[in-house]
Amino acid sequence: MKALIETIVRPLVDYPEHIVVTEEENEHKIRYHLSVHENDVGKVIGKNGRIAKAIRTVVYAAGSDVKKKVYLDIM
């Protein structure tokens, strides 16, 4: 899933070397934290959060085969 998130975000940013995806898992959920360069945050979030919502939709759909709830935080 980390590779999927990086693959989606990489073309959107100017500083792809600053993409960091971390995973935090417990018994009921998996939470991914996406961190990008401060100049790229707006590009990843998009106007009115549309790009962030689209990224989350893809990630949630890809995680639907997992029995745990999947979350994506963008920082």
Rank of each mutant, 00 (worst) to 15 (best):
L34A: 12
G42I: 02
V70I: 13
E38S: 14
E24H: 15
D40R: 12
D65S: 14
V9P: 14
I55T: 06
H18L: 00
D73C: 05
K69R: 15
G63Y: 10
L72P: 06
I45G: 04
A52H: 12
V13N: 13
I74F: 01
K67L: 08
D40E: 07
E38C: 00
V66E: 10
E17R: 12
K2P: 06
K69H: 01
M1N: 05
T22M: 03
E6M: 10
V66P: 00
E23K: 14
V70D: 01
H28S: 13
H28T: 10
K69I: 01
V70Q: 07
S35N: 11
Y32P: 06
K68R: 09
L34H: 04
E38L: 05
V59I: 15
G42L: 09
H18K: 13
H28I: 11
P16E: 01
H18F: 05
G63A: 06
K68I: 09
I45Q: 01
G46N: 08
V20Y: 10
R56T: 01
V58I: 15
Y15H: 15
E23F: 03
Y15S: 14
L72S: 08
I30V: 10
T7Y: 14
I19W: 11
T7W: 04
V20C: 05
Y71W: 08
T7V: 00
K43Y: 02
T22V: 11
I55Q: 11
R56I: 00
T57A: 15
V58A: 08
V44D: 03
V21A: 13
A54K: 04
I55N: 10
P11M: 11
V36T: 12
A62Q: 12
Y60P: 02
V58Q: 07
V9A: 09
P11W: 02
K53S: 13
H33S: 03
T57W: 00
S35Y: 00
P11T: 07
V59H: 05
R10D: 10
L72E: 06
H37F: 08
I55P: 09
D65L: 08
N48R: 15
R50T: 04
T7H: 14
Y60V: 05
L34N: 09
K43A: 07
I55D: 01
V13T: 01
H37A: 14
M75P: 07
E25L: 04
A61L: 10
G49V: 11
A61P: 04
G63L: 10
I30Q: 00
I5V: 09
V13Q: 05
E17T: 09
L4D: 01
D65F: 05
H33D: 02
L12A: 07
H18W: 05
N39T: 07
V66H: 01
